[in-house]
Amino acid sequence: MKTWMMVLALATATPAEARDLGVPAGKGWKHAETGLILMPQLAGLSRIALTDATQTERDVAAQYDMPDKSLFATIYLFHPAVADVAMWFDRSRTAIETRDLFRNAAPASADPIAFAVGGTGSAASLRQVYATPGGGQYRSTALAVVPVGDWVVSVRMSAKTLTADQLDASLQQVIQAIRWPPSATTGTIAAAPVTTCTTPLTFTKAKQTKPNGADLLMSLMASTMAAKAKTEETSAPPVPHPTWCRDGTASTEYGVYRSSASTGGYVMALYDAGRVISVYPSLMGQVDNSGTYAVSLEDVEGTTSVFPSFTALPSPKQVWDLVESGKRSGTMKGKQMTIDPKAL
C-alpha cells in the first residue's frame, strides 16, 4: 500500500502518509459525504484504527480486529475516478492474488458472487472468498466491494483458523453490521465480474510529442467540463452504464481496461484505491488530425494531472513510466489550474 502512495505522491503532489481521523475508540464515525456509519464494533470485531489518505475523507481506511488477533477486517471507503464496482473488485482481487501471502489461495467459488446489500435492490455488489494452503499465516481470506452512489466500499478480511465457508459467513455479518446509507441499499445496476477483452490492443511506435500549449490547455479544460457534466442536472436521457473489459494480464501496479462506450484508447486503474490514468485521442489531435494521444491521471480528490502527449497510442508500460516519473505538464482541480511553463 505504501508503494502506490509514494508513486502517486510523486505524480500528484499529494501527501504520502495517511492521517489519523482521531475518533474516540468507543464512538461511531459517520462519513459526511455518503452518510455511511462505522460503529466501534462490527460483528464482534473492534475498530483499532481509522485513517484518511487525503485531507477530505476521500480515501478512508478502518481497521477492525478480534481480541485474539485470529480475524481482522479492513474497510476502505474511497471516491474513485471511475465509479464501477466490477473494475475495483477486479483490482482488489488482483492485489490479493499477486501477494506472496495469498499467491496460492484457491477461490471457494468458480466466480465471484453478486449480492444485494441489506437484501434490497439489485445484486450490485461482488464478493469472493479464498482458502489458503496449510502452513501459511492465514487459513482463509475474503473480499467484498459495494457501491455507495459514486463511492466504493471495499471490505477485506483474513482469518487464521476459519475455513473459507466460515469466513464467508463472518464477511456477510460484517457487511450487515455496517450502517449503510440508502444509496447502497437501493442499487439498480446488477454487478458482473470484468471479463478479458476479446480483441487485445496492439501498439505501434509511440513517442512523446513536443510541448504544445494549446494541446495542454484543451486537455485541462476537458477535465473540468467532464467534472461539471457529472454534477449538473440535465433533461437528457441517462447515459447507459458502460461495461468494462480487461486488456491483457493485470499486475499489482495497474490493470488496463476498455469501456463499451469508448471510441478509442484505454484507462489504467492504479493499484486498488480509485486512481485512474486515461489514455485517449487528444482533443487537439482530433482538431489538427495529428492523431496524438493525451495522458491524464485523476485522483480520488478530483485533481486531474495532465502529462505529455504521445504521437500514437502508447503502451501501458510507456504510460506507467511517464506517470511514475512525475513529469506532469499541468493540473486542474475545480477552477484552479496550474501549468508547468516548460510545457507551453
Rank of each mutant, 00 (worst) to 15 (best):
P200Y: 00
S223R: 11
L220S: 03
S235L: 15
L201I: 03
P242D: 09
T231Y: 05
A222H: 01
A222Q: 04
V239T: 15
K228M: 14
W244T: 08
S219Q: 08
M221Q: 13
A214Y: 09
L217D: 06
W244M: 02
L220F: 03
T204Y: 06
A214G: 12
A206F: 12
A236T: 02
T231A: 12
L201F: 00
T224G: 14
K207N: 14
H241E: 15
D215R: 07
M218L: 14
E232D: 03
T231L: 13
K205N: 15
S219E: 02
T224P: 07
A222E: 08
M225P: 08
M225S: 15
M218E: 06
M221W: 09
A227M: 07
W244F: 12
K207C: 12
T202W: 07
C245G: 05
E233W: 01
H241K: 15
T202S: 13
K228D: 15
L220E: 05
T224N: 13
W244H: 04
A214W: 09
T202G: 06
S223H: 08
M218K: 01
K230N: 01
M225R: 10
T202F: 08
Q208M: 14
T209N: 08
S223A: 14
W244E: 05
P238D: 11
G213D: 10
N212P: 07
K207R: 14
N212A: 08
H241T: 14
L217W: 04
E233P: 00
P211W: 13
P237S: 04
Q208Y: 12
A226S: 12
S223I: 04
P200C: 03
A214V: 09
L220K: 02
G213W: 02
P238S: 14
K205W: 13
D215L: 08
A229K: 09
A214T: 13
A236Y: 02
A226Y: 06
K205T: 15
